[in-house]
């Protein structure tokens, strides 16, 4: 019997006849990520008068399995911007390392005379600059046929210290809006946020408390209806004063009363 590794797991020639290798190419084209593996679900964000609120739950799913329940999907950049990642978690980690490196390079370029941290932050890359950079990076990877399998929200302030919120996806598609949501959130959370901030003018009227309330409401709806979500989440508020990031929040005031009225799934017979 043939014990060589190349025969492992193949039908035995002496029993089934010679194996047809023709469809197995020895050297095929290089293949990159063709689908995400461990994934994060929605990221939601909304602008308000002085800044942006952004949130994402702490779950990393392996298919439909809730595999990791303590994954922080909001990352800060230079203490002035927050990046929220949906999609592949390993690509998120790669991007996070990449952005840390970028932040270090940026810090080297800083004026040695910049007195305060605030002054230094003003001179560094702001959220709008970061958005432009990520947009180029994602589009480049798409053109290399090796995409970073994420949809990303960038929250922060622009060069005039106005609230800034933008989205980039694995194809390099990019846009800004007064409120944004990725993944399932684009269907479930976006309409709720648009009730409160349909336009830039509306968003500029929202207070910080209102914006936080809207985002918490969205996280709750997402937990009700998105089977790949979790009731523990991270939420960040970005303003001129800096970032207020909380990474282990619990969804409050849940009411599953509506669930009883849902028919048509599972084992009910009525």
């Amino acid at each position: 019997m043939d014990h060589r590794p190349q025969a492992w797991g193949r039908p035995r020639d002496d029993v089934y006849g010679a194996y047809d290798h023709s469809y197995l190419q020895q050297s095929g084209p290089k293949t990159a990520t063709q689908s995400p593996v461990v994934t994060g679900t929605s990221v939601v964000a909304i602008k308000f008068k002085e800044g942006v609120v952004i949130a994402a739950d702490n779950l990393a799913s392996y298919g439909s399995l809730a595999r990791f329940t303590d994954v922080k999907r909001l990352r800060t950049f230079l203490g002035t911007s927050v990046v929220g990642f949906g999609g592949d978690v390993s690509d998120m980690q790669w991007l996070d390392r990449h952005l840390k490196e970028l932040a270090i390079d940026e810090a080297y370029d800083q004026e040695p005379t910049a007195e305060s941290a605030e002054a230094a932050a003003k001179e560094g890359l702001n959220a709008a600059n970061l958005y432009k950079y990520l947009q180029k990076l994602m589009y480049k990877r798409r053109n290399d046929f090796d995409p970073l399998w994420n949809q990303i929200l960038i929250a922060g302030l622009d060069e005039d210290d106005k609230p800034f919120l933008a989205s980039v996806d694995l194809r390099g598609t990019s846009f800004t809006s007064p409120s944004l949501a990725t993944g399932f959130g684009a269907m479930l959370a976006q309409p709720i946020m648009r009730l409160h901030a349909a336009t830039e003018e509306d968003a500029a009227k929202l207070t910080r408390e209102q914006a936080v309330e809207v985002v918490k409401e969205c996280m709750k709806v997402l937990y009700y209806r998105d089977a790949r979500s979790l009731d523990r989440y991270s939420i960040a508020v970005v303003t001129k004063e800096g970032i207020d990031l909380k990474e282990d929040e619990q969804l409050e005031k849940q009411s599953w009363a509506f669930a009883e009225r849902i028919k048509g799934y599972g084992t009910q017979t009525v």
Binding site: D109, E111, L125, K132
Partner: peptide, 15 residues
């Protein structure tokens, strides 16, 4: 300018 959407810091350019 194209990758970051801002003016290059003069110090970086000179370095």
């Amino acid at each position: 300018r194209l990758t970051y959407g801002r003016s290059m810091p003069v110090r970086s350019l000179v370095e």
